[in-house]
Amino acid sequence: MRSTAVVVACVLLAGCGDGPLGAAEGAASAPADAPADVATGPDYAGDFDLVGTEPFWAGKVREGAITLDRMEGGAVSLSNPGVRIDGEQGVWDAEQPGEAGAEGHRLVFRLTPQPCSDGMSDRVFSHAAEVWLDGTSFKGCAARTEDLARQGRP
């Protein structure tokens, strides 16, 4: 009886192929691993600074908040909702409903990777920027804060 069990176990083990579930009938070997150089999407991690002219404005993407500061109209800062990738673009879309006696806001930053000049300085930014605040749009440029610092720019 014991020898029968050993024989059955050997037959069952012999039927297993190279892979965990055995090789498919007629297959030369187990499936290949996925290629290591699989392309990933664009990287929008970290801080970004945005600028625009006519009218002058500045924006910031930080871990805790996205902020738009307008020379005329003051600053609006909303909790950073995280970036959403739309093709090659990075989009931050934050909304704060109004409370009793306070106005709500919707602030959207959309960055597109392409060289951009603000038209007023010699700076070249890595991204074009579009900003929407409560239905008003602004166009400008953006770059990672660390890249601007490397260029000696505030």
Rank of each mutant, 00 (worst) to 15 (best):
A5H: 00
V7T: 03
V8C: 04
V8A: 10
C10A: 14
C10V: 07
C10D: 03
V11C: 07
A14D: 04
G15V: 07
G17R: 11
G17Q: 06
D18K: 09
L21T: 11
G22T: 11
G22S: 14
A24K: 11
E25L: 07
G26R: 09
A27S: 13
S29K: 06
S29T: 12
P31Y: 00
P31T: 02
V38F: 04
A39T: 10
T40Y: 02
G41C: 02
F48H: 13
D49C: 10
T53Q: 12
T53F: 02
P55L: 03
P55N: 01
F56N: 11
V61Y: 07
R62S: 14
E63I: 15
A65Y: 13
I66H: 12
T67W: 15
M71R: 13
G73N: 12
P81F: 06
P81C: 13
P81V: 13
G82W: 07
I85H: 05
D86I: 04
G87F: 05
G90S: 08
G90M: 05
V91L: 07
W92C: 07
W92I: 05
A94K: 14
E95I: 05
G98I: 03
A100S: 15
A100Q: 15
H105I: 02
H105E: 04
R106P: 09
V108K: 12
R110L: 06
Q114N: 01
P115L: 03
S117N: 13
S117W: 00
D118P: 04
S121H: 02
V124F: 00
H127N: 09
V131M: 01
D134V: 03
G135Q: 11
T136D: 11
F138M: 05
K139M: 02
G140F: 03
G140L: 04
C141K: 02
R144C: 04
E146Q: 12
D147G: 02
G152Q: 09
P154N: 11
